[in-house]
Simulated assay, not measured.
Amino acid sequence: MTEREQEILRLLREDPMIPQQQLADRLGISRSALASHISSLMRQGYVQGRGYVLREGPYAVVVGGANMDICGTAEGPLRQGDSNLGKVRLAPGGVGRNIAENLARLGSDCRLVSAVGRDPHGERLIEVSQQAGINMRHVLQLEGHSTSCYLSLHGQDGEMQCAINDMAILEALTPQRLAPLDGLLGAARALVLDANLTEPTLAWLFGRYAHLPLFVDTVSVAKVEKLRPWLAAIHTLKPNRLEAERLCRRTITGPADGPAVAAWFHRAGVRRLFLSLGEQGVFYSDGEQQAHLPILPSPVVNVTGGGDAYMGALIHAWLQDYDLHQSARFARACAALAVASPDTVFTGLSLAAVERLLEEYPC
């Protein structure tokens, strides 16, 4: 599938009844060119019949945070207690939402379950996320709640000086509110959870859907402890070095520690482990196969979105039945593209872009 065809599918998922001329106008192409792309998608089986009926296939559900990132960067030395000249940037974020966007940009059917306020930030999050290809129909818009916001202040060198994270609305994402979505959650080919969820909600999800492939993002050292009681229910876990150290209570110095760390997690019940070692790459294991992959020698502009891209790629690989090594290589390439971009989610991410990078680095 070409990048243009992926873009067309994203728009069709957002509005299956969109008129052909309007779709062509949104893409900036002629109606005849659009018809050619639609014919190609029909031959491939992605579009079936008239009215843009999309093929039903395996899908992933991501349950987690969606927030608006507000980032301020000073133009000169940051002066405390004073007003500083600089730039303020507003962008959609949240671990769960970012994973979902990466997954959607790779062409997978992804549905997000989260909560936003009925406010301008919430409306904007839904609009932008839909445009990226995420199915947002099951995101709750709650009256009397403010959409989650992450406010960060950076010096002129880009280093964060402080931040405020307001994610109180996720406390409203309770088992009672999730229960009506049981059919959606139970039929997912992969269920993705992030540790921003409250402990009661995580306990309900782990208890009810332990039979599904559960992919879990640890989020941070502070939040990873929430997962300790539920390690046996986790199919795929992607901690960084510090998060893994917190859980297994041992020091990790590098890839040589990978086998022992993986053994601990497998004894705890985790099926697959992808341990991020920063500049030292990733050690991965499923109990039978394990290996270390170094990072790709690509430019690093912003490391913030690398982990979300890696997790999104792992889920896509699972939906496509990739084996363990294929999954690790594919995820590494997605992460490399993400960290080379100034944005938290690389808007140019596509299967074609990943395949080009994999051809450049075949091992």
Rank of each mutant, 00 (worst) to 15 (best):
Thr218Cys: 11
Leu54Glu: 12
Gly269Arg: 07
Arg246Cys: 14
Ile99Lys: 02
Ile169Ala: 03
Gln80Trp: 06
Ser341Leu: 05
Thr236Gln: 00
Cys149Met: 14
Tyr52Val: 07
Gly258Gln: 05
Ala328Pro: 03
Arg50Gly: 15
Gln290Val: 00
Ala336Leu: 13
Ala268Tyr: 02
Gly312Asp: 01
Met167His: 14
Leu153Ile: 14
Val63Cys: 12
Gln21Gly: 01
His154Gln: 11
Val128Trp: 06
Arg356Cys: 15
Gly258Leu: 08
Arg228Gly: 00
Gln326Gly: 15
Gly93Lys: 08
Ala190Tyr: 09
Gly207Pro: 10
Gly96His: 08
Gly122Thr: 10
Thr198Leu: 07
Ser30Val: 01
Pro294Arg: 09
Asp194Tyr: 07
His154Asp: 06
Leu277Gly: 11
Cys334Trp: 00
Glu245Arg: 08
Ala291Cys: 10
Gly207Asn: 01
Tyr284Trp: 15
Asp182Met: 00
Cys248His: 09
Phe330Met: 06
Ser108Phe: 01
Ile315Asn: 05
Ser32Trp: 07
Gln326Ser: 14
Val61Ser: 00
Val61Cys: 00
Thr198Trp: 13
Glu14Val: 09
Gly183Trp: 10
Val345Arg: 09
Gly122Glu: 05
Asp82Arg: 10
Phe206His: 15
Pro297Thr: 01
Asp82Val: 05
Pro362Gln: 05
Asn302Glu: 03
Phe215Ala: 04
Trp230Ser: 08
Ala260Met: 11
Gln141Ala: 13
Ala268Ile: 04
Ser39Met: 05
Ile164Asp: 07
Ala335Arg: 04
Ala338Ile: 04
Glu199Trp: 05
Cys248Lys: 08
Tyr322Met: 14
Ala172Ser: 12
Ile234Ser: 00
Leu247His: 13
Ala291Glu: 09
Leu212Ala: 04
Arg271Gly: 00
Ser152Asp: 09
Pro19His: 04
Gly306Thr: 01
Gly81Ser: 11
Leu227Phe: 04
Gly94Ser: 06
Ala317Tyr: 08
His325Ala: 13
Phe206Lys: 02
Gly49Met: 04
Asp217Lys: 05
Ser114Trp: 03
Asp217His: 10
Leu202Asn: 08
Leu275Val: 10
Leu140Lys: 13
Gln44Met: 14
Pro294Ser: 08
Glu3Asp: 15
Ser146Asp: 07
Phe206Ile: 11
Leu247Trp: 11
Leu247Ala: 12
Met42Gly: 06
Val95Cys: 10
Asp194Val: 03
Thr347Phe: 00
Asp82Trp: 14
Leu142Phe: 02
Ile29Gln: 04
Arg246Asp: 02
Pro92Thr: 09
Lys87Asn: 07
Leu296Cys: 09
Ala260Ser: 13
Leu142Ser: 12
Leu202Thr: 11
Pro259Ile: 01
Gln326Met: 12
Thr236Glu: 03
Met160Val: 13
Ala233Lys: 10
Val113Gly: 09
Gly144Gln: 01
Ala233Glu: 15
Ala115Ser: 15
Asp182His: 07
Arg97Asp: 06
Asn240Arg: 07
Ala331Leu: 12
Phe346Val: 02
Ala187Asn: 01
His154Ser: 12
Tyr52Gly: 02
Pro259Ser: 03
Pro175Phe: 01
Met136Pro: 07
